[in-house]
Computed example of a mutant assay.
Amino acid sequence: MRIALLTYSTKPRGGVVHTLALAEALSRAGADVDVWTLGRGGDSTFYRPVDPAVGVRAVPFPEVPGEDVGARIQRSIAVLRDAFTPGDYDVVHAQDCISANAALPCLRTIHHLDTFTTPALVACHERAVVEPVGRVCVSESVAAEVKAGWGLTPTVIPNGVDADRFARAAGPAGDADRAMWRSRLGPYVLALGGIEPRKGSIDLLEAYALIRRRRPDVRLVFAGGETLFDYRDYRAAFERRAAELGVHHEMLGVVDEDVLPGLVAGASAMAFVSTKEGFGLAAMEALAAGVPVVARDLPVLREVFGDAVRFAAEPMAMGGSLASVLAEPPDPAPGRALAASYTWEAAAAAHLAFYAQHLSEGGGRA
Results as ranks from 00 to 15, higher is better:
V133E: 06
G134P: 10
R135T: 15
S139F: 03
A144L: 02
V146H: 00
G149D: 01
W150G: 09
T153G: 07
P154R: 09
T155N: 10
I157A: 10
I157C: 11
P158F: 02
V161G: 04
D162N: 13
A167Y: 08
R168D: 14
R168F: 09
A170K: 11
G171K: 01
G174F: 07
R178P: 15
R178T: 15
S183D: 11
L185G: 10
L185M: 09
P187V: 03
Y188L: 10
V189S: 10
A191G: 08
L192I: 15
G193S: 05
G194Y: 00
I195A: 01
R198N: 10
S201I: 06
L204V: 11
E206M: 02
Y208T: 03
A209P: 08
A209W: 04
R212A: 15
R213M: 07
R214G: 15
L220N: 02
F222W: 14
A223V: 08
T227E: 01
L228P: 09
D230E: 09
D230Q: 03
Y231M: 00
R232F: 00
Y234A: 10
E244D: 14
E244I: 00
E244G: 11
L245Q: 06
V247L: 03
V247I: 05
H249E: 04
E250L: 10
E250W: 04
L252V: 15
L252M: 15
D256P: 14
D256F: 00
L260S: 08
L260T: 08
L260P: 03
P261Y: 03
L263T: 13
A269S: 13
F272E: 09
